[in-house]
């Protein structure tokens, strides 16, 4: 759903007036707009560019330069995988792979039902708990593939293989 019409941009107007259309405040303006709308719709960027009197492509240049900015609506649950050194050494990539496998999306993507989005983030500074993922602002440490399933189950992802530990007596089938 694209936020388009003038109504959807009301928060943008409010933020712009708070910063008095100050060109220097472009980054705080974009941050606040994203906080309000969840992402930066093209219409909002155009409006901001007009207000601070720069070519729209310049605002687009900013929005695509910085990791923080999102051009598409995020999922209801934002999953961020820390890719700091300590996390990488002990399985950050494995955690990312596990989420990708379960959600069937790649990094920087959102599931078609918009419930989950996945991204990698630079070090969140919780290296002593590596590997770390951030689920909707909450930091979760020592994440293994089993824990990934647990996290997704808590978030209500359906279609996960049932918790197999209890049913493990059966074992897998011979291929």
């Amino acid at each position: 759903m694209e936020i388009g019409g003038s109504e959807g941009l009301l928060p943008v107007e409010e933020i712009l007036s708070r910063y008095r259309n100050d060109r220097e405040k472009l980054i705080p303006i974009l941050q606040q707009v994203q906080e309000k709308l969840g992402y930066l719709p093209l219409a909002a960027m155009e409006r901001i560019a007009r207000a601070v009197r720069v070519p729209a492509v310049e605002v687009y240049g900013l929005a695509t330069f910085y990791n923080q900015f999102r051009l598409n609506p995020p999922g209801d649950h934002q999953i961020k995988i820390c890719m700091g050194t300590a996390c990488y050494m002990v399985g950050g990539q494995i955690a990312l792979d596990s989420f990708e496998r379960r959600l069937q999306i790649g990094e920087d993507e959102t599931t078609p039902d918009r419930r989950f989005s996945l991204e990698r983030v630079a070090c969140v500074g919780c290296c002593t708990l590596a590997p770390v993922v951030v689920i909707n602002e909450r930091v979760e440490g020592k994440v293994t593939p089993t824990r990934v399933d647990g996290i997704l189950l808590e978030l209500g992802l359906e279609g996960l293989p049932e918790q197999k530990n209890s049913a493990s007596e059966e074992g897998g089938k011979t291929p």
Binding site: V54, P55, A56, V57, E58, Y60, G61, T64, F65
Partner: peptide, 10 residues
């Protein structure tokens, strides 16, 4: 004096 193009991404 148009400003149709710019750098994007990094």
């Amino acid at each position: 004096r148009v400003g149709a193009i710019g750098f994007s991404r990094r």
